[in-house]
């Protein structure tokens, strides 16, 4: 096998990226699988344990709750972000006085580091001084205030609320960019044919946005299900381990308690979903390249 000149140049140019990713993503990934199949504990070499970690996990109450949380959380947050992002993008689509301000204001939650902005939310959910509860009590909507982070169901909803807050800008801005690529003539032609706003949205906007929506949805699903920062800062998985996601439980099990093997096994539950998303994304991209 002989390499042409162009091929040699190409391999040289791509080598640093491939090596970096091989040693810091590929190798750790294999290591994760290896760890998950062993009973290693921090500071002590382990031995091969087969699927013991996975079987143990499947029987643990905390893990079952966590897996349930992951799906409930991801599903609700992604749907909310999609709907709100779409509404916002449609509202911002035509030029409006002050549109630059709106764009910047809307993007802010996405620009500020999540761990830090979530601290602000934690303070807004404070058991005694919550500003949201202050409003609820003063307006008579609630007499004692809502136990935002103290009660499992409310804590889950709070986490969804913060994740949605953080993620709407990403949806809105991408959908907005997608809207801008739809030719105006299509709408004008539809208007001539007597189409109303709803028909135009269903027959023109939605079909033409499909590639953007698919990409944003898949991407956001991965990012949402693998979230760590919001749960870590808001609840640390509490109350009573009821709000863990896979990443926070992996952190607690693998690092705080030192069961590295079990922690790695928990993280790996993200992998099947990841494979699916990569597969679909690549399909979308290929189709685009062929055009």
């Amino acid at each position: 096998m002989r390499f042409g000149r162009e091929e040699k140049v190409a391999f040289l140019m791509i080598a640093p990226a491939i090596l970096w990713l091989f040693f810091l993503v590929g190798y750790p990934f294999v290591l994760a699988i290896y760890l998950s199949l062993s009973d290693v504990i921090v500071g002590r070499p382990g031995s091969f344990a087969g699927f013991k970690n996975f079987i143990d996990l499947a029987q643990t109450k905390i893990f079952q709750t966590t897996l349930g949380n992951s799906f409930f959380f991801t599903f609700s947050a992604v749907i909310l972000k999609l709907v709100l992002g779409m509404v916002l993008a449609l509202l911002l689509n035509q030029r409006l006085f002050g549109h630059k301000f709106f764009r910047a204001a809307i993007l802010l939650p996405w620009v500020v580091p999540t761990a830090l902005s979530t601290l602000g939310w934690k303070w807004m959910f404070d058991p005694t001084y919550s500003v949201i509860n202050w409003v609820f009590i003063k307006t008579g909507l609630s007499t004692t205030g809502i136990p935002w982070l103290a009660q499992p169901l409310w804590a889950k909803l709070s986490i969804i609320m913060v994740n949605t807050w953080r993620g709407v800008p990403f949806f809105a801005i991408n959908i907005l960019a997608g809207l801008k690529t739809i030719p105006r003539e299509l709408y004008e032609a539809a208007e001539v044919d007597g189409a109303g706003p709803i028909t135009k949205f269903r027959r023109i906007t939605l079909p033409l946005l499909k590639p953007v929506l698919a990409t944003v949805l898949l991407f956001s699903t991965v990012m949402t299900i693998s979230d760590f920062n919001i749960v870590y800062v808001l609840t640390r998985g509490g109350p009573m381990d009821s709000t863990h996601l896979l990443a926070t439980l992996a952190y607690q099990t693998g690092l705080a308690s030192g069961f590295l093997g079990k922690g790695a096994a928990i993280s790996l539950f993200l992998f099947p979903l990841l494979t699916l998303v990569v597969y679909f994304q690549l399909k979308i991209i290929r189709r685009k390249w062929e055009w």
């Binding site: 190409a10 491939i18 990713l21 990934f29 979230d227 760590f228 992996a250 952190y251 990569v278 994304q281």
Partner: peptide, 27 residues
């Protein structure tokens, strides 16, 4: 550039792009 495996490398880098860091922090 045209080279053997270009598409494979491209797909590989894309797959890594989607790999969340929360999957890898322990190893």
């Amino acid at each position: 550039l045209r080279f053997r495996g270009a598409e494979l490398f491209g797909a590989g880098i894309f797959a890594v792009y989607l790999m969340p860091s929360t999957l890898l922090f322990l190893p």
